[in-house]
Each structure stands twice: as structure tokens, then as C-alpha cells.
Amino acid sequence: MKRALPLYALGAYLFLHLPLAILAIFSVNASRFTIWEGFSLKWYRAMFADRDLLESAANSLLIAVAATILATIIGTLAAYALWKKASPWLAGSLYLSLVTPEIVTGISLLAFFQWIFRYLHLRLGMHTVILAHVSFSIAYVVLVVIARLRSFDPALEEAALDLGETEFGAFYRVTLPYLAPAIAAAAMLAFTVSIDDYVITSLVAGVDSRTLPMVIYAMARRGVNPVLNAVSTVVVAGLGALILISERLRRTA
């Protein structure tokens, strides 16, 4: 077993990473077919010439940044409140948001928006997408921040209160700095789940809010496309870097 286990692990890591590595290799293949014809960056050039892709990438970034900022603030405050005293209702609904199948979250938000739009003169668009993303990111933020709070000594806050800080002052000047690395990690996680979401987004997006995953999905459904190989490589490299930074922050925390 001593030798079999590392060998097995090697196989498992290859299974996990090889498909994406192959995609990256073929993204610089000159041929549009699965035959190596030499190095070329033409698919990357085609990617940067595709207005649809660039526009949707810009939408995705805007949505992800807005949703991340909102979800991180709301989630951090909620984590702190839950740490002070449990709230079965909020904890339960956060769990529920994590386990609800995305397709159900998506259609229920769609039904909800259509229902309130009967009374308000609004349409599906960036705002509905951002609200949906805030909704499903909060639980991730709370999980990461509350894990860090577990290792925080409440006596530090009490000391601050004894020294004349207000409740908010103690939170703001003592607890919050201690949480900073976890908050940064949580924000990056929220960003990655937001920028990657397809199912919920596609249901609540309007005509002006097509996101990158929506364009990728439409391309993938039509079949394999070398431009998509290039897009995939850029997205995977970008998200990978973000996650490594986030993990580092969480660990050095």
C-alpha cells in the first residue's frame, strides 16, 4: 500500500488536471483540428477581436465586482452577528441557499422578478443579475469569515470595551483588522463563484447583461471551437491565480 497510494494519487491528479492542460496546449495549436500543426497565437488574436466575447467579459467583471463588494460586506457583518449569538433562521437559510440546486434558485428568482415587475416598471438586466449573485455568494462569505472568528479571542473585545471603546469601536478597531485576511479570501471566493455562474445568471439576465459564461455556454453547445480553447485557458489561468492567492491569505491567516 505504501507505493500504491502515491501512484494512485498521481493518476487522480492527472485525471483532475490533464483535461485543462490539454485544452491549454491546443489553444496555441495552429490547426483548428485536433492535430498539432505548430505554435500559433491566432486563436488568442481571434478572441480579442470578438466583440461579443469582450462585451460579455466586461459585463461579467462589472457584475462580479459589484456582487463581491456587496456580498462581502453583508456576509462579514452577518458572520460577526452569528458568531456573537446563533440565529437558526439565518443559518438555516444560508445552508438552504448552498444546497438548493442552481436551476431551482434560478427559476424561483425569475418567478420572483417577474412577479414584482408587474408592480414596478423594471426589466431583467444587470441589477437583477447582481442581486442574484449577491444572494448566492453571501453563504460562502459567511462560512469563510466565521471560520476565522472561531480562532478569535473574545477577551480582546472585552479589553477594548473596558478601555472605553464602544461596541462598534471594538468591532471596527479590534475584530475587523483580525478578520482582514479571511475577508479578503472570502471576497475572492465570492468573485470566483460570481464570475463563473451560468445557470442562475442565464435565467435572470436581460438583453443587455449577457455574461462571459453565457457566451461560453452558447459556444460550447455548438461544439468544439479553437477560440473557446483560448478563452478557457485565459479564464482558468486567471481564476487559478486568484484562488491560489485566496488560499494563501486564508492559511497565513
Binding site: H17, F26, L189, Y198, A220, S232, V235, V236, L239
Partner: peptide, 15 residues
Amino acid sequence: PFWTSFLIRLYAWMF
């Protein structure tokens, strides 16, 4: 890979 785009990981298998 857990946090990398799920969509792209599926596309890799289509490829």
C-alpha cells in the same frame, strides 16, 4: 479545479 470554471472543465471533456 474545484473553484475553476465548472463550465470550462466540462468543455474540456467535450474536447
